Computed example of a mutant assay.
Amino acid sequence: MKDYIEERVLEVARYIIESRATIRKTAKMFGVSKSTVHKDITERLPKINPQVAKEAKDILDLNKSERHIRGGKATKMKYKAADL
């Protein structure tokens, strides 16, 4: 794996852990696709640093389990704003 990819993977993981960010937010922050962030965390990071990989994966799993709630809140806000 190239050095710049390893550096990006570690930066992405650090960002996710510190900010508890979603894949979408992380991808936007780093200017890469959601697929790239997902591959970095699930495939590349465990080879580089398994401990950090577990921490980042735990946060992404939590975000995934809560996404239906965030979607519902966004829809509620959308229609609440339309009523005004």
Rank of each mutant, 00 (worst) to 15 (best):
P46W: 10
R24L: 11
K2Y: 01
S65V: 07
V12A: 15
T42C: 09
V32R: 00
I17E: 09
D40W: 15
E43F: 10
D61G: 14
A74D: 07
K34S: 12
E18G: 08
I16C: 05
T26W: 01
R44E: 12
A82Q: 11
G71W: 00
R67Y: 09
R70F: 08
S35E: 08
L62T: 04
F30K: 05
R70I: 09
R20T: 10
K54R: 14
E11K: 09
I17K: 00
K73Q: 02
I16G: 10
I48N: 08
K39Q: 08
D61L: 10
K64G: 13
T26S: 05
K80H: 04
Q51Y: 13
D40T: 03
R67L: 09
S33V: 00
K39V: 11
E18S: 13
Q51N: 13
L62E: 15
G31D: 12
Q51G: 07
P46A: 06
E11T: 02
T42D: 07
A13L: 07
E18I: 02
N63E: 13
E6A: 07
R24I: 11
R24C: 05
K64H: 10
R8F: 11
L84Q: 04
A82D: 07
I41F: 08
A81H: 08
I59L: 07
T75H: 05
M1G: 15
D83E: 14
D83L: 13
M1S: 13
S65G: 03
L84G: 13
H38M: 06
K25C: 01
E66D: 04
P50M: 11
S35G: 15
E7G: 04
